[in-house]
């Protein structure tokens, strides 16, 4: 089991990352046309002149750069991400309200992709160069080359427009007001297509990785030892090879969390799934750069947290990790 000290150490390591993101955000603000107040208020001039003046003052735009940065840091640390005039509410509140659907989508995708990927990958490795392997390898090559948004659109054409099995958009049926189990069922029904769309790509990635990893592990000495003990091939794989082979997959899953979030932006846009990704698209469309920066900041924090969780899983799988 990972010790508390380990968890704390990893948390402490995350602090500079989060700070660096804040600085990056600040730099992006500087790069944008107009001054920070223009950006923060949105371009369309929907803010009142009083608010603009107040903004300029609160950001100390007349102050030197480093002081501006410090002020910005202070605001972000207190979770004050500004105000969105498009939505008429504070950015932090807006983001919190959209966090749930994104977490649901990403959690489903990550779990599905890792489990099914590991399953398919080891299946392909066990039946190396036979039809199972060829089929899985061909499908993964295809899925790995498919743009996520296009896969989503094509699934909509097939399963929603032609077959009518799944809804095309949203997270719940409008005006149905389901409660309890019916609500869960309704959300799950809506979740299927977006989750499958995003899973396909990562599933393919993990399946390829798992296949290669199983093949590599199968040539290790400890596998010979296991055979010399009298284990069947199935036991050798299940008891010895699988756990070792999963290590690179888990590492990769950790590295990919950020990428999966990027995919969520596209998928949420395609399926109008009311999460952070869709919010990002909307803010992009409305040129609400401040909201976009807020989403960027929160999503990075999110990735840091998920990374930590993945690392903890890894340290449970691999006892050697405590040495590092």
């Amino acid at each position: 089991m990972p010790s508390l000290a380990y968890v704390l150490r990893r948390l402490a390591q995350a602090v500079p990352t989060v700070l660096a993101i804040v600085v990056l955000n600040f730099l992006l603000l500087q790069l944008a046309p107009g001054d920070a107040a223009d950006v923060l208020a949105g371009e369309a001039g929907s803010a009142t002149p009083e608010y603009m003046a107040q903004l300029r003052k609160s950001f100390g735009l007349d102050q030197p750069m480093w002081l501006q940065l410090l002020l910005y840091l202070k605001q972000v640390v207190t979770f004050d991400l500004g105000f969105s005039f498009r939505h008429g509410m504070p950015v932090s509140e807006l983001i919190l309200s959209r966090l749930g659907p994104t977490l649901l989508l990403m959690g489903t995708v990550l779990t599905l992709a890792v489990f099914v990927g590991v399953l398919l990958g080891s299946l392909a490795a066990r039946h190396l160069n036979r039809w199972q392997d060829n089929l899985i390898s061909t499908l993964t090559v295809l899925a790995y080359a498919t743009p996520v948004f296009w896969a989503g659109l094509m699934l909509i054409v097939l399963f929603s427009v032609k077959l009518g099995w799944f809804p095309t958009s949203g997270m719940q049926k409008v005006a149905a007001f389901h409660e309890g189990f019916a609500k869960v069922k309704d959300i799950a029904h809506h979740l299927v297509l977006p989750a499958v769309t995003l899973t396909l790509f990562y599933l393919a990635l993990y399946a390829r990785l798992m296949r290669a990893s199983v093949l590599e592990q199968a040539s290790m000495d400890y596998v010979v030892t296991a055979r010399a003990k009298g284990l069947t091939e199935r036991q050798v794989i299940r008891r010895h090879v699988l756990r070792n082979a999963m290590l690179p997959v888990v590492t990769m899953a950790g590295v990919q969390v950020g990428a999966i979030f990027g995919g969520a932006v596209v998928v949420e846009t395609v399926f109008a799934w009311p999460g952070l990704g869709l919010l990002a698209y909307e803010s992009l469309f409305a040129r609400d750069l401040n909201l976009l920066l807020g989403i960027f900041f929160v999503s990075t924090c999110l990735v840091v947290m998920v990374n930590l969780a993945v690392d903890l899983c890894y340290s449970m799988l691999d006892p050697r990790i405590e040495l590092r």
């Binding site: 000495d221 400890y222 010979v224 030892t225 756990r243 070792n244 691999d318 050697r320």
Partner: peptide, 11 residues
Amino acid sequence: FQEPMTALNPV
């Protein structure tokens, strides 16, 4: 075997 480190399962 020759190399007990690799002949034992590390996990």
